[in-house]
Every structure is written in C-alpha cells, then in structure tokens.
Nucleic acid binder design. Structure first.
Lengths: 141, 141
DNA sequence: AATGATACTTGTATTATGCAAGTTATTGAT
DNA sequence: ATCAATAACTTGCATAATACAAGTATCATT
C-alpha cells in the first residue's frame, strides 16, 4: 500500500481523494491527529475502532510519504515518535466538519452532542481557526 | 458487503460515515449520481475509473438498502432501472464540495477548471441549491 | 418466435486487511 | 554496567474484499 502506483489518474478530484485516503483507516488516523489531538503510535493503536498494528504502520508511512503527516522524534523521550498534521492535513478540516454534520444527522446513535454540532454548524471558520491555532502554537513553541 | 453487520458502532460520526461509505467505490457512484447526473447501471459501469460489474451491483444494492439511493423502473423502457438520490444523498453535497476543493488544491493533474472551482468556493449554497433544484424538477415532473 | 439490449449473477484469481507473535532501540531502575 | 520494561514497529499466515471473465434472466423490438 505504501508502494502504491497511481493508476486511476482520471483528473476527478473525488477519485484523487479516494486514491489517497479512500481506505478503511486513513481518515480515522487523521481524525485522531486533527480532531482528537493524538500524537503517538500507541495512541492510534488504542483508538476504539481497533486498528491492527501492521496496518497502522503502513498507513502512517503512507501519510508521511504523501506529506499529510510529519514524523519527528519526541525530544523528551527518544523512543517516541510524534506524528503531526501538515497544512495538507489541516486543509481537510472543512471536509471533516461536513462529514460530521452529515453523519450525526443520520446516525441514531451518534456521540456528537447538540452543543458540539451547533459549534460546527454555527461558525465553521472559528472552529477551524481554533484547531489551527492549537497546532501552530505547538509547532512554534 | 450488502449483508454487513454494523460492528464499529463507536458513536463517532467519522466511523459511521466510513462504515457506510468508506470503501473504494461508494462515493464514486454517488458522485456519478449527484454531480454528474448519471442514472443507469450501464452509465456507472462506463465511468472512467472502471468499476467491475459485481462490485457495482453490490454497492447499488447497499446504497439502496441504506436509503441513500432509490431505484425505480424507467417508465419508457422497463428493462432499465433509474437510480436517483434521496435527501440523505443530497445532504452529502457540502462534503463533496469540500473534498473537491481539497483535492483540486493538491492534485497537480486535476481536471477541475478555475471557473468551476470558483463557483464551488464563491457561493457554495447557490451551487447546492442548483443541484437540488435539478433533482426536484425531475422527481416531480 | 428470434435477436439484441439491459441488468445483473457466478466462479475464481488476486489483493487488502486482520490477528498473533517476534524484533529492535531506548529508558529507567538496580 | 546490567536488566527489565516500553515504544514502535516487522513478519507470517488466515480471512475478507475486490478484480476479472464468463454466464443468465428479463424485457423490447422486429
């Protein structure tokens, strides 16, 4: 999967998106990074959806290669790697928001609270700005 | 796949979305229906991404079961079935738009023209209204 | 009644994912 | 300085999803 060939080159943005992120796990990893603020390998492993370790390793490598995530050593513990979102990842926020709005409308068992949803819907750009600010402060600090 | 069990029930909208539409083909079929206005089985088969016929049949059945597409007989030709979007499908439009904006920003070979992109970005709600109007007129006519 | 069109179904090969166990490098404690 | 524990993976094999090729059922036209 990491060594995938880009064969669907049809020019359609939808096909491009799915070629890069249209598997069962990539978007869940990005949700962990962008929305839930996870950083470490073991944190992704512990996600309640239950990704297996070989698939996780493969997807992290792929997302790094695509410059959607960047991998750095944790200066406080050299055993740990920190995965953080690039601009290309943060640019997915509007799509995530629309995905959330759709899913929480149609999923009877959604865990999204009314307040959270109102926050998304009411002022998307301020939510996006908040998330971006969080990552900017950690990367420049 | 049609007889799938819903095992990931984590409550996360992202997981819900991927459970329903997170395979390689469902979103491409919905793009064909919603954005490109395709209706017939053979039209989906002829999409340039090249879906195989057994997978197409499976996904159409799944999307119908999920009430994302509805299937009706073509009154002019009883051999043909017409697949059309439900409200649940049309509610995906905002997500498609954000997906298109992201993908055309990062795909060097995007087929999306500057004008089309400006139309998406400039006034999303009017684009959405136009698409919806198209389907309303055909369903009531 | 025969022919072609349309929408599928079936069988099998290939690829992707899931699961369990093992490996390497670093760290913190003794 | 040594050793057990931690973190991030890798490897091998089973299962599931997708791809490819061929076949079938139904309706429409002649």
């Amino acid at each position: 999967m990491v060594d995938m060939k880009y064969k669907t080159r049809t020019g359609c943005p939808c096909a491009y998106f799915l070629e890069l992120l249209g598997d069962k796990w990539s978007l869940l990893i990005l949700r962990d990074v962008i929305i839930l603020g996870k950083q470490y390998y073991h944190e992704f492993l512990e996600s309640e959806e239950g990704i297996s370790t070989n698939i996780l390793a493969d997807r992290l490598a792929k997302l790094e290669k695509l410059k959607i995530l960047k991998k750095t050593r944790d200066p406080n513990n050299l055993r740990k790697n920190i995965y953080s979102p690039t601009e290309k990842a943060l640019d997915l926020l509007p799509m995530f928001i629309e995905m959330f709005i759709w899913a929480s409308k149609y999923d009877l068992y959604t865990a999204v609270t009314r307040e959270h949803l109102d926050r998304f819907r009411g002022d998307k750009s301020s939510y996006i700005a908040d998330v971006r600010a969080k990552f900017n402060s950690t990367t420049t600090r």
